[in-house]
Each structure stands twice: as C-alpha cells, then as structure tokens.
Amino acid sequence: MELKGKLADAFNDQITLELAASTVYRQLAIEMDVLSLPGVAGWFRAQAAEELVHAEKFITHMTDRGAHPAIGDISAPALRVSTVDGAFQASLDHEKKVSESIRDLYRLAHNEGDIDSVPLLNWFIEEQVEEEATVGEILDRVKMINNDGNGLLRLDSELAARQV
C-alpha cells in the first residue's frame, strides 16, 4: 500500500523531529564537554547517533512504500545547561515530546486505516517507553547525587561505557 496524504506528511514531520532530536542531543553533549564530563558527553553523542537511526527507519519505511521522504526545517537548539540534572531534564522533556508525536502518528495511522505502518509505530512506541525510562532513571540518580563530585565522576564513568 502506497503511503500518501496526511500520513506521509506526518511521517516527514517525524523525520524532521528525529533529526532535530539528534541536534538536541549533540548540543547536550557539547554542554557536558564544557563541564569536563566526557562520559556523560559520550552518552549524549551516542543518543544523537541513535536519533539518526530513528530518522532512517522512517525514511526507509516511506521509500519502501513509494512515498517521498523530505526533511523539513531544523533549527539549532538554543539549549544551554550548566548542570548534569539540567541536561537530563532537557533530555527527558524532549523524549516526552517525541513520544507524543509517535502516539499521534499511531492514532493517525489507525484513523487512516493504514495497517502497514502499525509494526513500525509499535516498535517506536516500545522504544520511546524505554527511552523515557532510561533517561528518567539517570535523572533520578543525578538528583540523588545532588552535585556531589565523587558521585558525578562515578556516574560519568558508568555512562562512558555506553556503546554507539
């Protein structure tokens, strides 16, 4: 079934949002580099790379279904954070925005009777639950540390273990 109309437009919007998410995460990595936390910065760089993979999944789905993917306008985020908890709060806020966008796509696919999009969207719904849980857990741990230097360095070391 060809992907077209409102759903194709919404998928293009999602591609743009995923690419914007990558930019948000890259900026958060820069902010953590400025704070001399290379492990946290690396975690955010890995997250930025993952968002590119997410955009690619939508692009592939569209081209496989005869649609024409198009990237919309992406502006650089005006994100400036000076704390680790500020960075992870910004991350969680952005993940919630992406999650709601995925839910909107799911609702639209059902309203349009486009069952071919459902497997992809189910994958993304599960992915977003995981993303929010992961970032939420890290944020909870950062709050427990309460800017303690030893705790931040330990967390930095743990997050450095994440592979791209």
Rank of each mutant, 00 (worst) to 15 (best):
L35P: 08
E51L: 10
V34F: 06
V53T: 11
W43K: 12
T23G: 07
F44H: 11
A20L: 05
A55V: 08
A49Q: 11
L28I: 09
L35Y: 00
A41N: 04
L35R: 02
V34L: 10
S36P: 07
D33L: 10
V34R: 14
L52N: 06
E31W: 00
M32I: 09
I30E: 02
E31F: 04
V24F: 04
V24D: 02
A49E: 11
Q27V: 15
E50S: 02
K57I: 04
V34E: 07
I30Y: 11
M32Q: 14
A46E: 04
P38N: 15
D33K: 14
H54N: 07
E56M: 09
F58H: 00
G39R: 07
Q27Y: 12
V53S: 07
W43C: 07
F44Y: 13
G39M: 09
A29H: 09
L52Y: 11
I30P: 00
A41M: 06
S22I: 04
V40F: 08
V53Y: 09
L52E: 13
M32T: 06
L35E: 01
H54P: 03
S36W: 06
G39C: 12
L28D: 08
F44I: 12
Y25H: 11
I59P: 00
E51M: 09
D33N: 15
D33Q: 12
T23M: 13
L52A: 08
I30H: 06
H54Q: 11
S22T: 06
A20D: 01
E50A: 01
E56S: 10
V40E: 01
H54S: 05
S22P: 04
E31S: 13
V24G: 02
T23P: 00
I30R: 01
A55R: 00
D33C: 08
A29W: 10
I59D: 01
F58E: 01
D33Y: 13
S36M: 13
